[in-house]
Design a protein around this nucleic acid. Structure first.
Length: 576
DNA sequence: GCCGTTTTCGGCCCGACTGTTTTCAGTCG
């Protein structure tokens, strides 16, 4: 799976790059869109595109003769000639300008052609030197927006999205686990704790002799540079500029090392304090008697915690947010797990902006062992999707038709509504009431005042047909701030009206985020952990939503899509 | 560049918002 995903991802990235470069050069907008569409389709495709012959490649929606040829050329030669040609004309830094929110291909092209700007740094310098002032279409507000966008980008501080880190870790762990003499290998660090972005990736392995593991590690194809190489620790930088540390420990020290390298630093400080008070000393090598220096325990994390008078603490809780105190009181939450999730309540198909068909999405849901599955395509007020009542009803018929093939899976017909500035949604109540489930989300007017946004969300909660507030803060990691709202008021309204808050699992959203979940659960709110999947493959993101929910201390009972269908349906009736 | 119970051309995702203009270009969802 990991490997297959990467081949498709490679092609998706290349086609998207080609689309971006075409748009910068002012190429035909429809051609640009064709490449973007093909990129998304390949990225979301369920088969490994490197294994497909020409005919089956062209069966991927949006892939025709020309793009199929380019994909084949890439797998045959390792490059795409036409991409190389356009790369030679446009520096990579110009494309990187497009990562700045509010800065698209036209402005990037203008900045490059008129001022020779080809990096974010040069752009920031140029703004401070007031060199943008004479540029057509650029005013003071544009400068301000660019600087804010750059600040958002830099907030991520070189950190990597959770899914990128996860996939990289999975690949490295799989590779190293096969090395002779490797007794254990896992990822640790902030990835094990499911933080929303990852700084450095920490891989931990156990072996008697570390040399074969270190050799294999430094020889991985994705390694661009070996930063440090030792017997216990080796650090590399990947071709994408990401630092990965491998630590190899004797298997006897596994538990102590895993505990130490999982962090967080703040959690470990608390744990070591407890050790000191008990006359012990904790390090990555084990728990030792402070006086005699004799090893007490080190083989498993459970033993280490137990010897300190604590139950094992799940990694997502290890942030020094009261988990040690809760553990001491015997009040650690029994965290929701991916296995607890019985179904997804927010997904899309190619009827709107998804890339997989309804049949493929449903088949994949059945394959995952879901008990229920909601298809919730976009409602008409999102103009790009050109939705209509007729299309929705036709989809409902199609859903009914496919349902017969999966007797163990209950299909729910839903929609993702748009909450307008007044808090109203797309359809009147009588039509909404015909859906099994309605998600309602903000997709426009992100910059209303806090007061107006709060009122807007409250109004949506009070709609008797709105079951779930989708991606409640609408933030995009590294791209868009959370909306300004009095979340306490919103959470109170959700609890009162029987409206669930979504934990959107998309790695660039993770919305609600962990702190907001901790806040919201104090109001007795219910949650829904959804994928918002736009393809079969993106159904996999569920783990990130569950990890985020765990960081928010959620138990299965607080999450409506862990419930049996009957209890879920009762909740979705919302007292109607 | 893709696609076709419109089949080899002529459409294709469209409307709103923002900031810049002085009638509109660029970006976004």
């Amino acid at each position: 799976m990991g490997n297959m995903a990467r081949r498709n991802d490679e092609v998706e990235a290349l086609l998207q790059e080609y689309a971006d470069l075409l748009s910068i050069t002012g190429g035909d907008a429809f051609k640009v869109r064709a490449y973007e569409r093909a990129a998304r389709a390949v990225g979301g495709h369920h088969e490994d595109v490197s294994t497909l012959d020409a005919k089956r490649l062209r069966a991927v929606p949006g892939v025709g003769r020309s793009i199929a040829d380019k994909v084949a050329e890439y797998f045959r030669t390792g490059t795409i000639r036409s991409l190389e040609e356009v790369r030679a004309r446009i520096p990579a830094g110009v494309r990187e300008l497009m990562a700045i929110p509010t800065l698209g291909p036209r402005k990037a092209a203008l900045l490059y052609h008129d001022l020779g700007i080809s990096s974010v740094e040069e752009l920031v310098d140029a703004i401070h030197e007031e060199r943008l002032r004479d540029l057509k279409g650029f005013g003071p507000k544009t400068e301000e927006n660019i600087l804010h966008g750059v600040a958002l980008l830099r907030q991520a501080g070189g950190r990597v999205p959770l899914d990128d880190a996860w996939e990289l870790a999975a690949e490295i762990v799989a590779e190293l686990s096969g090395v002779s003499g490797c007794l254990r290998c896992v990822h640790a660090g902030s990835l094990r704790r499911f933080r929303e972005t990852i700084g450095d990736l920490d891989i931990l392995a156990a072996a008697d002799d570390s040399a074969p593991l270190m050799d294999a590690f430094t020889r991985l194809p994705l390694v661009a540079e070996v930063i440090a190489r030792g017997a216990k620790k080796t650090s590399v930088r990947t071709t994408k500029g990401f630092q990965v540390d491998l630590r190899v420990v004797p298997v006897q020290a596994w538990g102590a090392a895993l505990q130490y390298f999982t962090g967080s630093k703040e959690h470990n400080v608390r744990i070591r304090e407890r050790a000191v008070h008990a006359g012990l000393k904790l390090s990555e090598y084990g728990l030792f008697d402070a006086e005699s220096g004799e090893l007490v325990v080190s083989e498993t994390e459970e033993e280490v915690y137990a010897r300190l008078g604590l139950p094992w603490i799940p990694p997502p809780l290890r942030e020094d947010r009261g988990e040690v105190e809760a553990a001491l009181r015997g009040e650690l939450p029994e965290l929701v797990t991916e296995e607890d999730i019985r179904g997804d309540l927010h997904t899309h198909t190619d009827l709107t902006d998804g890339v997989s068909t309804l049949e493929d999405m449903v088949g994949a849901a059945a394959g995952r062992g879901h008990e229920y599955f909601a298809v919730t395509d976009h409602a008409p007020n999102l103009p790009m999707v050109r939705m209509s009542d007729e299309k929705m009803l036709a989809q409902r018929e199609r859903l009914r038709a496919v349902a017969g093939e999966y007797p163990a899976l209950t299909l729910l017909h839903g929609t993702e509504l748009n909450i307008d500035p007044e808090g109203e949604v797309d359809w009147p109540e009588d039509f909404l009431a015909t859906f099994d489930v309605c998600v309602a989300s903000i997709h426009s007017h992100f910059t209303l005042s806090g007061k107006d946004t709060t009122r807007r969300l409250l109004r949506a909660c009070e709609n008797p047909c709105v079951n779930i507030i989708g991606h409640p803060t609408t933030r995009l990691l590294g791209r868009r701030d959370a909306i300004d709202a009095d979340l306490g008021e919103v959470f109170r309204a959700c609890a009162r009206t029987g409206t669930a808050l979504e934990i959107n699992s998309a790695p660039d959203r993770l919305d609600l985020r962990d702190e907001d979940i901790l806040h919201a659960r104090r109001y007795g709110v219910k949650f829904a952990i959804n994928t918002d999947a736009h393809s079969v493959r993106s159904l996999d993101v569920l783990r990130y939503g569950v990890g985020t929910a765990q960081r928010g201390w959620l138990t299965a009972d607080e999450v409506i899509n862990t419930w049996p269908l009957g209890r879920l349906r009762e909740f979705l009736r919302k007292g109607r």
